[in-house]
Amino acid sequence: MYLLKRFANIRVAYIHSVDICSVFQIGDAKKITPKTNVLAVQRDYEKFNTKEGSFRSYQLFRESIPQPSFDEQFSSAYSNNSPNIYVDHVKILGISSSSIVNFGSAEEICAEARIKHIRQLSKNVDGDEKQR
């Protein structure tokens, strides 16, 4: 598949934060492949051990994700009547977890994010002293 790439003309861009394995790309890219593993632990009280948790112990970090095949045969025709894309103003609050903001063209983008959420609450919810 061959696609004649267009020019991206952006006048103003404002991005507040670029987080966890994300890409803000100005210009053309050949291949962008960010991959993230996240263990998101929310606790009722502040307690953090520097040595705890392991990606291996959760199945979602080990299993393989089925990918689409790109070698499917089909006939395609592209006609770019205008070689330009104009955007006056872009405002983004945040990009996170293997995300991509790309001004320009890309040949291949292949992103992957695996997020495991765990919430730990203390037993006494009625305002008694929390168990530690």
């Binding site: 696609l3 983004i92 995300s99 790309n102 320009g104 063209s105 890309a106």
Partner: peptide, 8 residues
């Protein structure tokens, strides 16, 4: 992905 442009 938020893309302004073309991709293969």
């Amino acid at each position: 992905v938020f893309l302004i442009g073309d991709a293969d």
